[in-house]
Amino acid sequence: MSELEFVTQHRRYLHAHPELSLEEYETTEYIIQFLKSEGVSYERPLKTGVVAYLPGKSDKTIAFRADIDALPIHEENDVDYRSQVDHVMHACGHDGHTTALMLHVKRCKALYDKGRLPHNVVFIFQPAEESGGGANLLIKTGKLDAYHLDAIYGVHIMPFVAEGSVVVRDEEITASATEYRFYLHGKSSHVANKEQGHSAAEAMQHLLTQLSQIQQYHLNGLQRNIVHVGRFHAGEAINTVPSSGYLEGTIRTYDMTDLQQVQKQMQKIAQSMSLLFNVQCELKFEEGYPPTINDPKLKKYVVESLAYNHQTVIEPKTPYLFGEDFSFYGQIAPAYFVFIGTRNEEQNNIHGLHTPQLNFDEKILINIADYYERLLFNFDEVIE
């Protein structure tokens, strides 16, 4: 079987059998069966996901991470390997990330068998990137501490960047992602006696207006931030004053000071509801993903490895406003994350992440494995 046949077969199987965050049981078993067939040792620190290991010739240990979960999206691609699960799809390319890492495992095992694996290698098949912060859950188990990682690398496909190009950026490359939720509690009354009620709908109108002003009036205009409203509703019946309301959304920023300012302003807005509308407001934040920070000390390995494999390096001035839980790995080891271009207009591979038409050419996955392999051979000193 050629490497192209290998990545095509595995990627398309995974694509046809997607599973949501923390439900990746069949995906986990599929990876385990592959690891067993290659004779690679592994462990399961969480109920889903796998961490595999191969010893090398040095005392350095390099980790590579792939996320394995899918999204609650109904696929619209007309391909023979389209998702067999209604309303679940690998719409973010994690099937590709997983397959590329499987190919890297296969190559590393061949090097190990020949006594040529330069360093110890940890392969992280991580669950729950999309929802649940699987990286953080894995780190909290403490299992990765035993490997004493010298570096950890990750990739993400990017359909807005051409095939053959890779986005590289020191320091921040993705934004923090923090969820927020407002709960409004008013007082109901019949519409004929509306003055006796305290309308959650009136408070909701104020809330929507004030949220839309945070970026314009309370943050540096040169900074890129998003205060996004994803869903809201208020009321119970057509002829009553709404007694309850709910609003949820996400905050994206790569400057933690900006995040604190957004949260502070939201708290002020919540407090104003009682004074202005006699509506009680409860605001909750859910711990999100911090910005993904790339360690500049690893950049030379990254750039040299990409150049060796004839990949064009693109260095943007500003980070993406995506959230990415690879960010947590920077807490335990020097880390570096890049975006691999998959855009190919001739093949109509032009659709964005988290869309029902996302697709890419599997040959890209061989490029990722090439990059990983070169990183191993380029890593020749301890990062201090």
Rank of each mutant, 00 (worst) to 15 (best):
E324P: 00
D255I: 15
S21G: 15
N349M: 13
P45A: 04
Y320P: 02
F339M: 14
H228L: 12
L20W: 10
A162S: 13
D78S: 04
A110I: 05
F64C: 00
S83D: 07
A200I: 00
Q9S: 15
F123A: 08
H90T: 13
N220I: 08
V227I: 08
T28N: 06
A151E: 07
E172R: 13
K317Q: 10
F326Y: 05
H15N: 15
T257F: 13
Y13C: 09
V50A: 12
P55S: 10
F6N: 05
E248M: 15
T250F: 12
S41A: 11
L101Y: 03
G115R: 07
F285W: 10
D78W: 03
L365P: 04
N77H: 08
E75M: 07
A16Y: 06
M273R: 00
E26K: 13
A177M: 13
I293D: 09
H74K: 08
V105F: 09
S244D: 12
G197W: 00
Y246G: 01
I314H: 00
M273H: 13
V191P: 04
T312N: 14
A369W: 08
Y147E: 13
F339G: 03
A201Q: 10
G288M: 11
R343E: 03
D150Q: 13
G186A: 00
G230F: 08
H185S: 15
D145G: 07
T8S: 15
Q261W: 11
M204H: 00
L306H: 15
L137M: 11
D113L: 05
E286L: 14
L20T: 11
L259P: 09
D86T: 01
A369L: 09
E179M: 14
K60C: 03
T257R: 12
K284I: 09
K297R: 11
P72V: 00
G133Q: 13
C108V: 03
K194Y: 15
Y112C: 05
V262G: 07
N136M: 06
A66K: 01
